[in-house]
């Protein structure tokens, strides 16, 4: 039964990815800017060669023909060629993707690990000192944009205290533990900035969700069983309260990726976010298309994970 469910969800993901790619492709085709723009002004390239190149790459064909061609190539594993970097788009993205996924993943884990206990503790003692402090910090946390807190951390920990590096490097010349240590050291600030920003709003959601559940009848039933308050909260309250929070985390994924683009710029992380920005600036359409499509895939993937988690957390869902 649950395999059917998973299969159905994956089937639904296919048309949505096709739709997303179509929209992306059309918008990029309509956007101003030409990857060969630079050739026009280059006196060393004769006009015939320029036109021949345009014809070779099919740049003057109608949008839908170009889309079908792109889709066809994509399905065969050919993601196109970066005009600026002189390499295949998929190679370029695969170089950058692990860094982004590691930073975003670590930040999300940090957000969840901080937000769930804090939100639950705040909700079980509403209006207590702990609750007030948690609420205030959460409010401050999601009011401060990441580009501000990022710069602030760089200023304090890299420039003033000189504890952490402020440029993220992938070419660390070390091996074994040393290599890991350097990576963790340079990830601390970006992960903290992104994670706490996400965690701040998550705390508020967890708190209100727990407050909703803790008043319900089955929690009273659980209390009447004499299993002790900690078990009542962890077994009967938190699990039910997490169901709406899962939706929220999944729906926030696009925002997280958006925030990651900004954070990657600030900390000079060579992830796909900074790749996207540099390729937009360079009119490198195949790379822009590739990166945005990867973002779309990741968002769809996280929604899929949320749906699976849903089925696991709430037995009523799988059977529908």
């Amino acid at each position: 039964m649950s395999r059917d469910y998973l299969f159905r969800r994956i089937l639904i993901a296919i048309p949505s990815l096709l739709g997303i790619s179509l929209v992306l492709f059309t918008v990029l085709a309509l956007a101003p800017g030409d990857p060969f723009g630079e050739l026009v002004t280059n006196p060393n390239v004769p006009a015939e060669i320029r036109l021949a190149l345009r014809a070779k790459f099919g740049l003057d064909d109608p949008v839908w023909i170009r889309y079908v061609r792109w889709l066809n190539a994509m399905l065969q594993g050919d993601w196109g060629f970066s005009f600026t970097s002189r390499m295949d788009v998929d190679t370029l993205i695969m170089q950058r993707l692990p860094t982004t996924v590691a930073v975003i993943g670590a930040a999300q884990i940090l957000a969840i690990v901080v937000a769930i206990p804090v939100g639950v503790l705040a909700a079980t003692r509403p209006y207590s000192l702990f609750d007030q402090i948690a609420n205030t910090l959460a409010f401050v946390g999601f009011s401060l944009p990441t580009f501000f807190t990022g710069l602030l951390l760089i200023l304090v920990f890299s420039i003033q205290l000189d504890w952490l590096p402020f440029v993220y490097r992938t070419d660390i010349r070390a091996s074994g533990w040393q290599w890991w240590w350097e990576h963790i050291r340079q990830s601390i600030m970006p992960v903290t900035v992104l994670g706490l920003f996400q965690g701040a709003s998550l705390v508020r959601y967890v708190r209100s969700s727990v407050l909703d559940v803790i008043k319900l009848d089955y929690v009273t039933t659980a209390r009447s069983k004499g299993i002790g308050e900690p078990k009542v909260v962890t077994r009967h309250v938190v699990r039910n309260a997490l169901i709406p929070v899962v939706t929220l985390v999944a729906l926030q994924m696009p925002v997280v990726f958006g925030g990651a683009i900004v954070t990657e710029q600030i900390f000079r992380i060579p992830g796909i976010g900074s790749l996207l920005i540099s390729s937009i600036l360079a009119n490198d359409t195949p790379v822009v298309m590739g990166v945005t499509f990867v973002f779309a895939c990741l968002v769809v993937l996280f929604n899929l994970i949320a749906d699976i988690l849903y089925g696991w957390l709430d037995p009523r869902i799988t059977f529908r």
Partner: peptide
Amino acid sequence: IRAREIAMVFQEPMTSLNPV
């Protein structure tokens, strides 16, 4: 004492069981 010596049956069977 709860459940072992004194137990309780509630009014609303639709909501007094944990759905998960």
